[in-house]
Design a protein around this nucleic acid. Structure first.
Lengths: 298, 298
DNA sequence: TTTTAATATCGAAAAAATCGATACTAAATA
DNA sequence: TATTTAGTATCGATTTTTTCGATATTAAAA
């Protein structure tokens, strides 16, 4: 389909506004002959006269009026695109689709979002909370731009940027677990360890951090979220590992003991960002990382 | 302000739809290199990456998604202009701003509009009822396209096209006026002649058709519309001249006598069209005139 | 490492847009 | 009626832009 050009439409609009080819040409910063030819071309494309050339003024035909109305809408829309781009030309402006896993989002976001909105007021974060695998899938399909994940995790074709490392704490009910107020990795008994359900990276991180492998026959509850897990611990079903960021008074109810690990190399997970290697906005993401690093768990 | 071109926007849309430069180029009927350069140019204009080039697919950045949304709106609007023009490429299609004087409109329109809409179903008449002078002023300013007037009338810079001539009848109350059922021009007495108020061409046509000049001192009622005038006649204030098209049973109530003129050259007015000499749609107007001619008053 | 499948780039050719000058046109004026 | 005037249209030359075809580049897959 052959279409009018934006330039032609702007010529028509200028004529409508000024009622004269000459003045319109001036506004469009072209010669009158150029504008004249442009309008003629437009009239040819549309197969209709658009401009009524009078001695004193150039007015529009009814169809010309209809057309100029659409044309001005089109010009406005086009200019809006440009204006928007101007706004976003500063770094870390505009929409950014950020994926976060459930074992980070509720703890880190309330702390870090206010900082981000203050530091990058033009940033328009679109948050998506999902399990790591789904997030990576979306990232691969370019439906997301940036992920906030827990590592180690295999993320093919992606850049990883580690922000910080956080310790795990063991959580036990008031009268369960060891007598002391601390714990050692080797004291963990796999059969009493409570975990999130499969798919949560926290599950795997906890296990591997403690160098544990679950017996395949194990049949026990798996929780769908950390709050649920904590409730299970409190009820005395067993003990669990919690990342430090989840160890806040709001998250840990009374009746739960938090036990630090006394090992030389205590269990940890790493928190970091992840984006497509091919994404041209690496610089933006690194800037963002700089701010996210200021967050310290607990 | 430098603007993206419609072509560039269509490239972006094609990439969004096909997820690939190559397929998009195919759809746009250009080579991949052309499309690639076009997108690059667009990204330069906007100062931002729009497309995330992946191995398997080309996806859009968040700003690209925003932009493509506007772009597709713009493309639709543009295509709508073209589609509309296609529709109107047949003669006598689309909007036509027609001005009509009050002493024609209510009599001719009910007869002629149904015929027009049947014969030119795509014609979109916009009717404007005003006195001749105002209509001519609007016509001059290209705010109207075509006038349906009564002649003779001086219409500088305009084309006149006479459709037909219609006779005047004298209207008198049942027991007023001459004894016979007809009348002669010279029987009209200026002092008992009722007229429309100043500005109505009918007033001047009636006077000149009867070769009358009003005494400057004359102080009498002037009616603002023909129905009012007829009521005044019925009430016995005097007699008046009515154009034939106004002499229908719906217009003339009982108690009014319509008297034909017996003169060799009875008083008449002419009905015709009028448009700017420079208007390129002369052919359309003449076609229209052909149909309007089929109307016969009364 | 090679192959593959995509996008980017380059130089030449083609197309178009633009300009400046001039022709044309109709109204206003002399 | 001829001339002036004030607008738009047109023309040829030039410049700019677009496009193409070929090739380079890139990164994943084999």
């Amino acid at each position: 389909m052959i279409r009018p050009t934006i330039k032609q439409l702007s010529y028509l609009s200028a004529i409508h506004q000024h009622g004269s080819f000459i003045k319109a040409a001036e506004e469009c910063a072209v010669t009158q002959s150029t504008l004249s030819a442009g309008i003629k071309e437009l009239e040819t494309i549309l197969g209709q006269p658009l401009v009524l050339r009078g001695r004193k003024a150039a007015n529009l035909t009814p169809f010309g009026l209809e057309t100029v109305e659409s044309a001005e809408k089109i010009l406005e829309d086009t200019d809006r695109i440009v204006a928007r781009s101007r706004l976003l030309n500063q770094p870390l402006s505009g929409p950014l689709r950020l994926g976060i896993i459930p074992t980070i989002a509720p703890y880190m976001l309330p702390e870090i979002l206010p900082v981000l909105t203050e530091k990058f007021p033009r940033l328009e974060l679109q948050l998506h909370e999902e399990l790591t695998d789904r997030l990576l899938e979306s990232l691969r399909k370019s439906q997301l731009d940036l992920l906030l994940l827990a590592f180690p995790y295999d993320t093919p074709d992606m850049n990883q940027y580690i922000l910080f490392e956080e310790k795990f704490y063991a959580a036990a009910a008031e009268h369960a677990g060891p007598v002391e107020n601390s714990i050692n990795i080797k004291d963990l008994k796999p059969e009493e360890l409570l975990l999130l359900e499969d798919g949560h990276c926290l599950r795997d991180h906890a296990l591997s951090a403690c160098d544990l492998q679950l017996p395949k026959t194990r049949k026990t509850f798996s929780a769908t979220s950390l709050p649920t897990l904590i409730q299970m611990v409190k009820t005395g079903y067993g003990i669990t590992l919690l990342p430090e960021m989840a160890c806040t008074p709001e998250t840990i109810p009374p009746g739960i003991r938090l036990l630090p690990f006394t090992d030389k190399r205590p269990p940890t997970r790493q928190i970091g960002l992840c984006w497509r290697r091919s994404d041209p906005r690496k610089r933006d993401y690194e800037t963002l990382a700089g701010t996210l690093k200021t967050y310290t768990p607990a």
